[in-house]
């Protein structure tokens, strides 16, 4: 079997292909739990591409953290087991490995412009099913939900049309089918 060479003492870069993974982490909603999760990423040098967190059950006092991270399969596996051993963590699921996970993100974009650019922005927004949630004579704020790459695309299109500001929520993700996340 091939040995990984990822020891701190043999920092040859990973030659294994890296992939993007979405992890869902069910945690006790208590102070410091997010710091523990993030601290694990920063302390061990893992990437966070996107992070969302919110309470999902008030009665059970549970929060769900969704982390999008990139790395070779072995590193992702290591992240997962490291997360799993944090005391307030109930369960960790690699939604990318379950294969059929749904991902959505919400984006707010402010675009400023007049005349043709303004008309163009509005019609593109329409094509992307974005909603106008604020308007002045010279600006719009669009709201749009979708997969992250669709939002990327929308931002690219808005750039030449007077893009002023972008706010994104980060990815929320859930597996398809009738099964719930195993506890």
């Amino acid at each position: 079997m091939r040995q990984p060479t990822g020891s701190a003492y043999f920092m040859e870069e990973h030659h294994e292909p890296v992939a993007r993974h979405t992890l869902a982490i069910l945690v006790d909603n208590e102070p410091g739990v997010l710091a523990r999760v993030i601290g694990l990423f920063s302390g061990r040098g893992y990437n966070i591409d996107s992070l969302t967190v919110s309470e999902v059950s008030h009665e059970a006092n549970l929060s769900r953290i969704t982390v999008v991270t990139t790395g070779p399969a072995e590193v992702i596996d290591q992240i997962k087991t490291q997360l799993d051993r944090l005391v307030p963590v109930h369960s960790v699921v690699d939604l990318t490995l379950t294969g059929r996970a749904l991902e959505r993100e919400l984006l707010l974009v402010k675009v400023r412009g007049k005349g043709e650019a303004r008309v163009e922005a509005l019609s593109l927004a329409d094509a992307f099913r974005a909603r106008v949630i604020d308007a002045t004579i010279e600006s719009f704020v669009f709201e749009i939900t979708g997969k992250p790459d669709k939002l990327d695309q929308f931002i690219i299109l808005m750039k030449p049309l007077g893009l002023v500001e972008v706010a994104r929520t980060g990815v929320a993700s859930i597996a398809r089918g009738p099964e719930g996340m195993a506890e």
Binding site: M1, Q3, P4, G6, E74, Q78, T81, Q82, R85
Partner: peptide, 11 residues
């Protein structure tokens, strides 16, 4: 006993 120790450095 620690699952994160398995396959960490050596497969």
């Amino acid at each position: 006993i620690d699952p994160s120790s398995i396959n960490k450095n050596v497969k």
